[in-house]
Design a protein around this nucleic acid. Structure first.
Length: 934
DNA sequence: ACCTTCACG
DNA sequence: GACGTACGTGAAGGTG
């Protein structure tokens, strides 16, 4: 059916409607898994009313289409980058509903239209023009005032939620002018929501007044000098450019090169099967019944999926679609890639994975990209696979049939940055950094590794292979045989494209399937908030910190290395002299034999594999008996400092940036702490004077300072709060020395008579409590008899009864649920809690410690998530996190301001989710080096 | 690949 | 009464 006289087109402003439905309707979630679907249901009701001529429809259309915004980046951003820049973040429970609404549109067999670079409004304007030019009429289903400029000459608007027609009269009411002058008024009045500047100081009322007086905007501007009010005259003569720019922004384009002809938008009867399938999957009972009645088909039964208990037994999901690596596509030309991109745009989400030449994102070359759109539907895009060995310039001959990397990335960039398209990754921080180095910002995203961490921390690790085997029952193709090992090791760009395709595309396929399995489960496991507030938002923060890196002075390290080497050589000679023979001082086995067999020193204890134990505590005890153990201890310290720090750190200086870039493993620690690797910058020495000097090599760049802010006693404060210990809480409120106060309480020593030794014991006990104290452990730590240690503990429990209560409650909670929780709802599974034997002790202490350590970890994460925006206008960068400390690099002029802002955020980081009964205190330090700042 | 040792919070 | 233990990490070097 062609479009012409008598035809009536309905254009539904899809994106705007979803927002309105989301805010206007009560939140609704899918019963079986908690997926938010309120806006989708509102949308489905609207579409059904539209095509069935339901109660809230003004007129029945002959043609219909739903128009969506393809992305927030449009031609308007090119003329004015700040356009819509102050839009609030998309609510987390709305985001997943966008792709579902597109799916709904197709299920109703209604045209679903969007176009890159244009807003929905422009497409609507274009179709409205086409419709009237063809002799038909058009109703825009929307209440957006920005569309009111289109009203008139056969076009009107209809607000489905207020059931109200918006015609020329309503436009007059709203703007004080007719539709043809709406643009002029908007250009003057501006729009704070869309961030259109307009003429400062002129609002809707004044704008309408002026336009009505002068006829139109151009006349007004031309005759601005005649205006009597000086303020208005000034603005209208001086801000002409800004006003004209605003006009460009608010004027809708009516010439978008649309792809679908009007005739294609003709109303079609929905395919009952597909529609019923969709509605029942959404679990819309009433709507399913209503529509099935009308279509005369059987309504599918919607089963109430029972909420499954804890995650503990993660039954492998039945494999519905088999893995068939040979079916994966290899994308070798741009046209094919564009086909995949089209599919992705239709769908609104996809899985992505990158293949590179290195695990170090700061050095890695991008070799290829894989995409997956559905289980079994995946492809690999090889970019720089090459043959043979690299020539002198590091480039071997590129293999044929690869899209130039630049072109492929240019095609993918809009999709990767499109905020209506969800990118799914497994450890997506890695891929995001690879893309970031090429100017591509990946957002929004989901990360299956983080989903797994939020749901299953403590149960297993979160690597893809393990997740695939556990939750998909599929063992992925191993990478080892492709890359070889040892001498024959090669980078991924040397892997043949056929093999690479199977391996790489499968990774994307697996990631997509994991996401499908995990996404509904997040709600069921009650960890959506943890994932959304503590995991996902941290990814870009960590990526930025890692990419910034920190300057490490190679000279300082290298001088220290030499000094250490000299001292070690001297010590080694002395040690050999004392031993009466040469041996490898670094070998615990050989050392043990020297100490306990040859010199027959006492206390030789053989461990389970028959070797003597030669740990620092044992050597310290032996130091009173013989000179040699002390020398070994000195040698060991130097050896450690040299090999792990002064030597190794030099090799981690990136040649391009001249800085050291650590990697933070977000899922590295079960408790929620981060782990730092390659290099580990969370264990740089500080406790001894010699070791601390290594921190002098960590320096601020020219003209800047290092600033360190750390929480004071955060774990003890959390303990005081969680276990509700009034005395501890009060002591923290009064700003007392907490260890001295504990000592005073326990041993009855008045504070002013406190000795360092008594305080030291109390401190050890305080820490012991956090670790799940035991008489044995405390005895060993304090080197006192076990019964004495036990007596301390008994006294402690007596003085602070809440502690024992907390421990007992935590253990019984863990036994009942097989997990423990932080104050912010992070779950740490404790599968071993019911075990018999030695592991029971470990599990118990772990269960006691996890909520405390984990809550502290959650708090600093919350601070880290907030900090970047709070200091965005300052010349300050967050570089490092060391569990309770954050290190910044700041231009000298901004040091004080940075400290003030960051301190406030850190100290208030628990709020508003949790109110901690004890103040959180942050101390700050500044210096040229980390040694000074800490 | 595993163990021991030791650096940090 | 015995078991074996402080909590959470990562890197390096030795050993088999």
């Amino acid at each position: 059916m062609t479009f012409g006289k008598g035809s009536h087109l309905h254009l539904i402003d899809g994106s705007a409607f979803i927002f309105r439905a989301y805010h206007a309707l009560p939140p609704l979630t899918r019963k079986s898994d908690g997926l938010p679907v309120g806006a989708v249901q509102g949308f489905c009701n609207l579409i059904w009313n539209e095509i069935s001529g339901g109660p809230t429809t003004k007129s029945t259309p002959t043609h219909i289409a739903v128009i969506f915004d393809a992305s927030s980046i449009t031609f308007r951003n090119e003329i004015y980058p700040e356009y819509k820049a102050n839009r609030p973040e998309l609510p987390e429970d709305l985001r997943p509903q966008f792709p579902l609404t597109r799916e709904a549109t197709r299920a109703f067999n209604v045209a679903c239209i969007e176009q890159q670079g244009f807003e929905a409004d422009d497409i609507i304007a274009t179709y409205a023009r086409l419709a009237t030019e063809a002799g038909g009429t058009c109703t825009i289903i929307s209440s957006d005032k920005d569309l009111m400029q289109l009203v008139g000459n056969g076009v009107d608007m209809f607000d489905p939620m207020k059931n109200k027609v918006l015609g020329v009269d309503e436009v007059f009411e709203k703007f004080g002018v007719g539709p043809d002058r709406v643009v002029d008024v908007q250009s003057l009045a501006g729009d704070s929501v869309d961030n259109v500047p307009g003429a400062p100081g002129i609002g809707l009322k004044t704008a309408a007044l002026l336009i009505n007086e002068y006829g139109d905007l151009d006349t007004l501007l031309a005759r601005a000098g005649e205006i009597k009010q000086p303020k208005r005259r000034e603005v209208l003569t001086e801000k002409v450019d800004q006003i004209r720019l605003s006009r460009e922004l608010v004027t809708l384009r009516r010439d978008v090169p649309v792809e679908d002809a009007l005739a294609d938008l003709v109303c079609k009867r929905p395919d009952a099967g597909a529609l019923m399938d969709f509605l029942s999957r959404m679990e819309f009972r009433t709507l399913t019944r209503r529509i099935s009645d009308k279509l005369g088909v059987e309504a599918p039964a919607i089963t109430e999926a029972p909420a499954t208990p804890a995650a503990a037994e993660a039954a492998p999901v039945a494999e519905q679609i088999p893995f068939e690596p040979e079916k994966y596509a290899c994308v070798r030309d741009l046209e094919t890639l564009l086909g995949w991109i089209d599919r992705i745009r239709d769908q609104g989400f996809f899985a992505v994975d990158t293949e590179t030449t290195s695990l170090d994102e700061m050095r890695a070359e991008l070799v290829g990209i894989s995409l997956a759109t559905a289980p079994g539907e995946a492809c690999y895009i090889p970019l720089i696979h090459s043959e043979g060995s690299d020539d002198l310039f590091g480039s071997a001959k590129l293999l044929e049939g690869q899209i130039p990397a630049e072109a492929a990335l240019a095609a993918l960039k809009p999709v990767l940055e499109d905020d209506s398209i969800l990118k799914i990754g497994q450890n997506i921080k890695y891929d995001a950094k690879i893309f970031a180095r090429r100017g591509i910002k990946v957002a929004p995203f989901d990360d299956t590794m983080l989903m797994s961490y939020a749901m299953f921390s403590g149960l297993h690790n979160h690597g893809m292979d393990e997740l695939s085997e556990t939750y998909l029952g599929h063992k992925p193709i191993p990478i080892k045989p492709l890359l070889g090992s040892g001498k024959s090791a090669r980078t991924f760009d040397k892997v043949g494209i056929e093999d690479a395709t199977k391996y790489a595309a499968e990774d994307a396929d697996i990631t997509l399937r994991l996401w499908q399995a995990f996404r509904p489960r997040l709600h069921r496991e009650r960890v959506t908030t943890v994932y959304e507030t503590l995991e996902r938002p941290l990814v870009p923060v960590l990526a930025q910190m890692e990419m910034h890196g920190i300057t490490v002075d190679r000279q300082v390290l290298s001088r220290m290395s030499s000094a250490f080497a000299q001292s070690m050589a001297g010590l080694e000679a002395e040690i050999h002299e004392m031993a009466g023979e040469t041996f490898n001082v670094g070998s615990p086995k050989q050392l043990g034999e020297i100490l306990f067999d040859k010199l027959s020193l006492p206390g030789g204890q053989k461990g389970k594999n028959g070797a003597y134990s030669t740990g620092a505590d044992i050597l310290e005890d032996l130091a009173t008996e013989h000179e040699l153990p002390g020398k070994v201890l000195d040698w060991r310290q130097l050896s450690k400092l040299k090999s792990t720090y002064t030597d190794a750190l030099q090799n981690h200086i990136n040649p391009e940036t001249g800085r050291v870039h650590t990697s933070y493993a977000q899922t590295g620690a079960n408790t929620g702490r981060l782990a730092s690797t390659d290099p580990n910058l969370q264990n740089i020495p500080v406790r001894t004077e010699e070791g601390r000097r290594i921190r002098e090599a960590f320096v601020a760049a020219e003209g800047k300072k290092l600033v360190s802010l750390d929480y004071s006693q955060i774990e003890l404060r959390i303990l005081a709060h969680i276990a509700e210990i009034p005395a501890l809480k009060q002591a923290f409120r009064d700003g007392l020395d907490i260890h001295a106060m504990t000592a005073s309480e326990m041993f009855g020593v008045p504070l002013d008579e406190m000795t360092p030794e008594v305080r030291r014991r109390a401190k050890a006990i305080n820490f012991g409590v956090i670790y799940g104290i035991s008489g044995f452990g405390l005895a060993r730590n304090l080197r006192i008899p076990r019964d004495q240690a036990q007596a301390f503990i008994d006294t402690y429990f007596q003085r602070f009864p809440g502690i024992k209560d907390y421990m007992d409650k935590t253990i019984s909670f863990a036994k009942e649920h097989k997990y423990v929780e932080t104050l912010f709802g992070r779950r740490i599974h404790t599968p071993e809690i019911g075990a018999k034997g030695p592991s029971a002790g470990f599990a118990r202490r772990g269960a006691i410690n996890a909520p405390i350590q984990g809550t502290a970890a959650d708090i600093i994460r919350r601070a880290m998530v907030r900090i970047p925006a709070a200091i965005a206008d300052l010349p300050a960068k967050m570089l490092l996190q060391v569990h309770d400390e954050l290190v910044f690099e700041v231009e000298e002029s901004a040091v004080e301001e940075t400290i003030a802002r960051v301190k406030a955020i850190m100290e208030g980081a628990a709020a508003p989710a949790v109110e901690i009964d004890v103040p959180l205190i942050v101390d700050a330090g500044v210096g040229m080096t980390w040694a000074e700042a800490h």
